[in-house]
Design a protein around this nucleic acid. Sequence first.
DNA 1: GCGATGACAAAAGTCAACATCTGTCAGTCC
DNA 2: GGACTGACAGATGTTGACTTTTGTCATCGC
Lengths: 207, 207
Amino acid sequence: MVEEALTAERILEAAEEVLRRFGPAKATVVDVARALGVSHGSVYRHFPSKTALRDAVAERWLARVSKPLAEVAAEKGPAPERLRRWLDLLIELKRKKARDDPELFATYRELVADARDVVRVHVETLASQIAQILADGVEQGAFTIEDPVAAGWAVFHATTKFHKPSHASEWSDPGIDAAFEGVWSLLLGGLGAREAPAKTRKKPAKK
Amino acid sequence: MVEEALTAERILEAAEEVLRRFGPAKATVVDVARALGVSHGSVYRHFPSKTALRDAVAERWLARVSKPLAEVAAEKGPAPERLRRWLDLLIELKRKKARDDPELFATYRELVADARDVVRVHVETLASQIAQILADGVEQGAFTIEDPVAAGWAVFHATTKFHKPSHASEWSDPGIDAAFEGVWSLLLGGLGAREAPAKTRKKPAKK
DNA sequence: GCGATGACAAAAGTCAACATCTGTCAGTCC
DNA sequence: GGACTGACAGATGTTGACTTTTGTCATCGC
């Protein structure tokens, strides 16, 4: 005993490490148990199935994306600039994962592909973070949309290509940043962006 | 002799039929030759490899999408309404294929997935059709964008979710049409759409 | 002479015997 | 007595001998 009790948290950490090392195809519940020095039956006391364990790992991974974004969404500065930073951060987080460790990224993709419910919640979280920024923007007089929630979803959908992992192979295209600028420019216009009441300005004139 | 000469065109037709019946995993060059009553060696007189044959079939399929769209792009009416019809048609063509014969659609997806060059050309064709509509719109005073080509790509990218086959599983979501309306609304705003000089009006006020 | 053939080597795909894994549960151990 | 074990049945994966396919080319027949 003592030896640190077997908790869901410890199992998740071990599971993540095992997935990282063996990949989703080779990682077994027995491997996870072995890494913890217990029998695989014990793992089943904490997770009802291997699928549930994988879902929980996927959830952790997604939280590492949505949490830093939540901070940007909660800030108080000018909404257009904040929306841009939020999108840049989302895209950068995804690209970084894909670039720095493609194998791990592939593991992550397989995992979340099976965790549809977890993904649904994650995506709803992201869309509502955008909606929050947009609502702030309306309040600031920087945006003129009527329905921030609907517009939040629209921004999310319109930028799918730039953040959804199934498009990862396109992220190394040389024109990808220009493509995003084009979409950003249309979206900003569509949100009815205008100079905020007074205050900060950011970019110099374009072109 | 006579008996109709063996042409690339006839081989393509047979190949398409064989793919339709057996699927891309089971369709062989020998099957195609058998359907034509020739030896498989003969097929290789017209196509250097099985891959080239598959690419050619993919190209035909894609042409069946881009040709009807080219007609809409070439029309002369008000650009905003035409852009909307063009997008609706693109989306409808894709959805119809996916809905009416999911197996054939899966075959088509596998084929084009391997035909990257063919797809690149197809996508460039579509983006330039949008650009043409946008340029007309600028001329008509209906759009205020500076660079119709860049904006054409932006419209294409922003609507990826609604026409790219890898998103087909999302097309049966109940909210998909509302999602498109949201994106459309932002895009139209971003293009600087204003009532055309005089003339037609379409939708009643929203909400 | 030229399109077509079919035998062939190398590559790719199949499948059934075998091995491993998941999930359960009666029983152990502290 | 409750956390943990490990033997087990059924499900899932792996392996390697075998079959099929691709792509070539010397030869054929019109």
